[in-house]
């Protein structure tokens, strides 16, 4: 598998680490416990389109959002989570 890193270009799998589902969002402070349990533990685990977090650990270090199909491994979109252009 090769992930087209927006900063470094297409690079091989071994340069990246995987974190998991990127669609879960951290609840607001004070949100009920169920929301936190759901955020940390529960996953849709889809067979097909999956939006996920990867980090280009052996490259630029960016956390990436990768749209990848879990049945074919086809990657359709990759973006920095925090566009580096925004950094001051």
């Amino acid at each position: 598998m090769r992930i087209p890193c927006p900063l470094c270009g297409a690079r091989p799998l071994e340069e990246f680490v995987y974190r998991g589902d990127a669609t879960v969002t951290r609840p607001e402070e004070g949100a009920p416990m169920e929301e936190w349990v759901s955020y940390v533990y529960l996953r849709n685990n889809p067979k097909g389109a999956h939006r996920e977090h990867w980090r280009h650990v052996a490259g630029c270090g960016s956390w990436l959002i990768v749209d990848r199909n879990t049945l074919t491994h086809e990657i359709t979109r990759v973006a920095e989570v925090r566009p580096s252009g925004d950094a001051r």
Binding site: S38, L42, R43, N44, K47
Partner: peptide
């Protein structure tokens, strides 16, 4: 490996990834 799919048929979301 297909636990999430089958349980998803009744709307259950599980603490698991395939």
């Amino acid at each position: 490996g297909h636990t999430s799919q089958v349980m998803g048929m009744v709307g259950m979301k599980l603490p698991c990834e395939s």
